[in-house]
Design a binder for these strands. Sequence first.
DNA 1: CCAAGGGTCGTGACAGTGTCAACCGTGCCC
DNA 2: GGGCACGGTTGACACTGTCACGACCCTTGG
Lengths: 216, 216
Amino acid sequence: MPIGKTTNPTVARAVVRSGTAQSRRALLEAVGVVLAAEGLEGLSLRKVAAQAGLSHAAPGVLFGGRAAMLTEYAAEGFRALGRRLDQAERQAPDGVAALAAVGSAYVLFAVAEPLRFQVMFRTDTLLPRDPDYLAACREGFLPLQRAIERGMDEGWIAVGEIEDVTLAAWSLVHGLAMLWFSKHLAGRVSPDPKRLAARITQLFAGSIAHRAPATK
Amino acid sequence: MPIGKTTNPTVARAVVRSGTAQSRRALLEAVGVVLAAEGLEGLSLRKVAAQAGLSHAAPGVLFGGRAAMLTEYAAEGFRALGRRLDQAERQAPDGVAALAAVGSAYVLFAVAEPLRFQVMFRTDTLLPRDPDYLAACREGFLPLQRAIERGMDEGWIAVGEIEDVTLAAWSLVHGLAMLWFSKHLAGRVSPDPKRLAARITQLFAGSIAHRAPATK
DNA sequence: CCAAGGGTCGTGACAGTGTCAACCGTGCCC
DNA sequence: GGGCACGGTTGACACTGTCACGACCCTTGG
């Protein structure tokens, strides 16, 4: 008897998340396809459903609405981002390099997949309270926290400024990515995002690490 | 006769900016009202038109479409932002304070009017090539450039790094504002945006200004 | 003084969107 | 077999942005 593919009966009922895993996966992949083909504004549940070979109301049934589906899509993006940052952080020889590498990887991830990145942070079209989404976010930012800790171990970050340095680093690369999307930088800066991200993150990390003792 | 006859579409399109200034002004003000009442997702041309006391298609006629109207609204926002930054920059005693003050004012403007700020940078729903919009952007960022120039005159910014420092400063405050909106900072940092912005911008400006000579 | 015309805006219609109630088919268990 | 819960479709609804058409007003020419 082919009972092997039976789904967990009670859990599926308890959680709001229903639907077959295959259909949900197909829809999530279709989101990326439609996003790449039609752009951010051209994204619609109906196109996604058609791309996935399902009926037009399938996203609503399987996820519970547009926001819920995009939230799941965004959570997957945060997990992918976390893997990239983790890889960058581990390869860095010291704290300064780690901070710059994580920041650079952040920007390059955003530039490489701008649509996904923008969906990830468009919290007005998402469900920011979703526990899965929140967990993915927290997991994604662990590499940055590790890089900060390395700076603390190396002595160029004081315990009292951990929060500020972390937030400043995150803001820096997040803002750089956002400005890159917004095209406000077109013609204003060098067009190579890789070199640009490296310069900016090294400027920041280097300035923080090599401060003169009397910073007011 | 089903054949539409000699209507000249080019003549009607000759002047993009048509309509009375009053109606356009009323619509732009209505954008702010609807935005405040319904949020970013609740914004629609029909609600704006109703709020302004006009017909549902008035925005399309008077501006040429949703994107054009929002672009004009965004341009007004950039002009207001420029005034705030200019004021902050002029009151600062030296370059470091100017850079921090401009950055702090940037964040506070964004926090004070989050919806307008988000519309200003949502370039996928705007017309980023609009000359009026571009001029307003450029004008809005003059104070930041002046602050950087003060730092250069004071000797803590080299000529070769003007571009990088400018972009880093802008990215920092822009990212901080964006992260604030995205609610990813909720519970993570101090809830007072004024104090937070001051700390972050002073950390950045102070680190850049008081670097040890051997950076890297 | 009146008719014509161009600009300003309302009206109606259309395709497309997200969401929901109602509806089937299919496998499961008593 | 007879429910029956699940996975998904169908159909409908309100709402959106956009466009063609028509009504009104102010100017202007004869």
